[in-house]
Amino acid sequence: MRAPIERRPPYGLAIWCAVTLLLALLVYATPARLTRSTDLMPLLPLITLFIWSTIRPYFIPPIVIFIVGLLQDLLTGGPMGIWAFAYLLSLTIMRVRKEDATTRDMGPLWFRFVATIAIAVVFAWIAGSLANSSPAPIQPMAIEAAASILMFPLIALISVRKRSSRGAFG
């Protein structure tokens, strides 16, 4: 006899979570220059981690955050550990531990994301400057953070709508 749909372990969703994280990393590292003068690329791995940690907090344990951050460091050719530490720090501080109605409201969700990315970017800037023994330029980080903040509502809306359209995921 089949178990009720609510009690089945959501393996399919877990695989989908892994796929989206991998895609976010690959697209972030892939040549996708939108204009010739600006290298604009939102921090897709952080957006994806944040959304999943809101939708399904237990899908995103610290080890997953660490691995995603480390892979981002490796794929972008930067010193290892910077984004791993920054993501761990920001998501540990700002993560949702329990789902409730407020996590679905775009306003508070967006505000929490802004705080998360601010912590991540500030720490990454400090760590990157220490690793390179000279202050890292602020402009590229500001552009990435701004692009991420602007793109977040779009991705979050799609994710939340998809989630609410499937009873088993809610």
């Binding site: 907090p57 237990y58 344990p61 610290p62 080890i63 955050i65 660490f66 951050g69 480390l70 010193p79 290892m80 550990g81 910077i82 791993a84 530490f85 761990l88 720090l89 540990t92 949702v96 531990r97 329990k98 789902e99 760590a127 220490l130 690793a131």
Partner: peptide
């Protein structure tokens, strides 16, 4: 009060990341 992860594991990962940096 929701999902909580092992503090030891989290702390270990922080230390590994710091050592890598």
């Amino acid at each position: 009060d929701g999902v909580r992860f092992s503090r030891t594991l989290t702390l270990t990962l922080f230390i590994i990341a710091a050592l890598l940096i």
